[in-house]
Each structure stands twice: as structure tokens, then as C-alpha cells.
Design a protein around this nucleic acid. Structure first.
Lengths: 219, 219
DNA sequence: TTTTAAGTTTAAGCTTGCTTAACTTTGCAT
DNA sequence: ATGCAAAGTTAAGCAAGCTTAAACTTAAAA
């Protein structure tokens, strides 16, 4: 498995996971920062290898074999992210791009040792689930959407969905990250924005940002 | 810097370090497991970039710029080796090939964090010196060659020069690794072989093997 | 001094993963 | 139903880092 293959399968899995609709080649091209011609090319090659279900001009999907591989790569990525943050105290901001490279180059053995070292963790530093060796995903069963939080109550941030680096930076600037305690000040129903208290600061979040945050009730 | 470049510079540095004579292209080809045509090709490219001093049919050497880069790569390699062994408890035998890949893919920032985590270590798990960020090499000043050890006295293994995997395996089978305590039983002057006591076992080493071991006196 | 073996270089070619440019297909809007 | 924009494909080509085969250089032995 090459790096290009790894990245293709991973991107296809994640895009599929992020939306209801089928994944379009252009999306994949944008995500991987390659041309759509390169996407077609790769799709054809991976279809030959039985990792992607694909017929020209039709949507593409991972086969079970492809999904299995994608989950392995995502496992590597998220284990590295957590390891770099927890053990080497790396900035949450650098952790992603570092993991993006390391995920392709560590042996199974090393990944398993990292897994053990971290105590078979279920979630990465962004709150994303870490696929297990078996390929199963830990359930974040009773996470609460921020929309459903009650004003006045205090919660812990459990998960933040990061798709755009700017969004990450924004949350970072306001001190919003997994593990952070926050309180809902008020919900503005007219546009579904919310006002929160994070640390000592009050923050106003638009609907789009609110939807990226998931909570656990405090106690 | 590509992986191929990294490996070329590293191999050239190490070969130069291991012997008195000039490095031959064939040696480099053997070490890197590529054809000698590929070596010529790479030498020409790196000469253009000012990293290698080279004229066709003549010996090649690192320029100061090339040596600086080589030392950086060796630093990465040895830091990874030590980290994998000390922190993740990886088998000394796997540590090398793992580091061989990781050395090309960690950021400066990550390597520095590993360095700090390990307390700015001077030697890797084989006892080889870890180049500092500045490019300087820690001196293993008063290491004793095994040849010069006195029968009856007890020492600690400080460094083992591993160039061939079989040699590594051999030492591993007899429990000889850095940090191991050993005693010299007898020296056989006629062929310069030696008999040692390692743990509870007696071991007979040929001259070639003896020369690979360096010691610190115990206390 | 000539021959020869070892070592090196050149030339041509391959694979992977890209690119751009030109083309085709699809499906939505009219 | 058709015509057009968006998406997708094909074709040709490039760079890196290899390969093999053939040609060449060097240094040292005969």
C-alpha cells in the first residue's frame, strides 16, 4: 500500500462519513489536493484491486476490503494524534499534520505498542473515535449535541468536528477544546446561534459552529 | 529533501566513518541496495546541489553542507531508536528498521520534543553517539576496547558496533547488549579471541566480534 | 607496456503519481 | 425535450528514482 492509496481510501471513507449524499470525484480531488484526472486514475486502479466499487461516470464507494483498510489508516492517524498530544505534549494544531505523515510509516507492531501505551483509548484529541484493531468503532453513545444543551447548566466538551483549519483556530482562540468545561448562557432561537461561557469568557457561536460541538454533562 | 537523498547522505557519512579508505560507489550501492548506475545518478544530482563533492570516476565525499544534513538525519535515526526502545519498549531488533522509516517523516519540532523527553541523550541503544542539534557529536572519550579489558575484572557494555544483522542476532543470543555487565575470563593471544562471562554463561568471541564491543569499567 | 578486472558512467526504459488540455457524459433548468 | 454547466474521462507528458545493458575509465598485474 502506497501513501497515495492510503490517502485515497481514507479520504473516501471520511467524506462518505461526513455526508448523506454520494461522494463526488471533485470532492475527493479537493480533499486530496490533486486533479480530478488523478482521482479517476486512482479510482480505476483501486477498483482493479477490489478496494473501490467504481464504474466510469458513476459514484464510487469503498468495498468491504477497502473500508477495512481505510479504518486501519484512520486508526493509525488517530492513535498518533493522541500519542503526540498526550505523551509528547504537542500542540493540538501540529498534531494533525504530523500524524498525517507518520500514519503511513509505522509498523503494525509499533501502532499496537502505542495503543497499549495509551491504554487502548477510544477517542483521539478531537473526540473522534479510534477504530479498534478489529475494525469496530467505539460508540460515543450518549454525547449531547450543543444545540440540545440547557442554558445555565455546565458541560464538558467531548468532541469537536474539525474539517477546516480555520475552524480549529477559531475554537482554539476561544479556548474551546475537548475536555474544556463550558456553560450555556443563552440560545437564540431565531438563528440558532448560542452564547456560551468558556473559562471566564463569553463566546457567541453561529449555528454552523454550534453543530460542530458535542458535550458530556458534568457529573 | 527526499527519502532517497536522506539515505544517500546518511550512507555516505557512515561509510566514510567506518573506514580509512575513500568510499566507493559500489559500497554505497550495496549499502543502499540500489544499482551503481543509480548511485552515479544520485551523486551527480547531489553534486549539483552542493551536498557532495564529486567528479566522474573519482571518489565522492560529503561537502560541509552535505555532512550537516547527514548528521541531522543520523540524529533523527538515533533519537527514534532510543525513544522506541526506552518509551515503547520495542525490541532492539525492530527498533532499527522502524527508525529507518520514521527518521524521514517527523518534523524538527517533533524530534526536538523527543530529544527533550529523553533528556537530551548522548547515546542510542547501541551505544552510538547521537549528534546534537548543533551538529556536534558527544564524545565517548574513555570507552575501553574489549581487547584492552583485563581478565578477572567486571565491566559494563557501553557500545556495540552493529553493521550486519547476523552480528546483532548473535550478540542478542548471548545476551550481550549495551548496559549488560560482563567479565573477561581469558584472552587467547594467538588469535586474539576472548572468553567472557555474560550473566551466568561463558562465551567465546573471535577477534572480529571482540572489536565490535566497547566497555566502561564498573565503578 | 599491454591486458584485464573492477568499478563507473551512459543510455534507454519502467513505474508511480501526478499534471494540463481536450473531450465526453450526465442531469438539471428551461 | 433540449441545451448547457458541472462533473468526469482520456490522452499526452513530466519528474523522481529506479532498472538493465552496453560502453567506458582506471589502476594494477603480467
Amino acid at each position: 500500500m502506497s501513501i497515495a492509496t492510503d490517502n485515497f481510501l481514507k479520504a473516501l471513507y471520511l467524506l462518505r462519513d461526513e455526508q448523506v449524499e454520494a461522494v463526488m470525484g471533485t470532492q475527493l480531488a479537493a480533499r486530496l489536493e490533486i486533479s480530478s484526472a488523478a482521482v479517476t486514475d486512482m479510482a480505476r486502479k483501486l477498483a482493479e484491486r477490489g478496494l473501490v466499487a467504481y464504474t466510469p461516470y458513476r459514484e464510487m464507494e469503498l468495498t468491504p476490503a477497502g473500508e477495512e483498510l481505510a479504518l486501519k489508516i484512520i486508526r493509525r492517524h488517530r492513535l498518533w494524534e493522541l500519542f503526540l498530544q498526550q505523551v509528547l505534549d504537542m500542540d493540538l494544531k501540529m498534531v494533525h499534520e504530523e500524524a498525517e505523515r507518520l500514519e503511513h510509516h509505522a509498523s503494525e507492531e509499533l501502532m499496537n505498542r502505542i495503543d497499549v501505551f495509551l491504554g487502548h483509548p477510544d477517542f483521539d484529541p478531537h473526540g473522534e473515535p479510534i477504530p479498534r484493531q478489529s475494525g469496530s468503532l467505539p460508540e460515543a453513545d450518549d454525547l449531547l449535541e450543543l444545540q440540545q444543551a440547557e442554558p445555565g447548566k455546565t458541560y464538558l466538551v467531548a468532541r469537536i468536528i474539525i474539517r477546516e483549519p480555520e475552524v480549529f483556530d477559531l475554537f482554539a482562540r476561544y479556548g474551546i477544546h475537548p475536555g474544556q468545561r463550558l456553560q450555556v448562557v443563552q440560545c437564540y432561537d431565531f438563528d440558532k446561534s448560542m452564547e456560551l461561557e468558556v473559562g471566564r469568557r463569553k463566546v457567541l457561536l453561529s449555528e454552523g459552529l454550534v453543530q460542530k460541538i458535542f458535550l458530556n454533562p458534568l457529573n
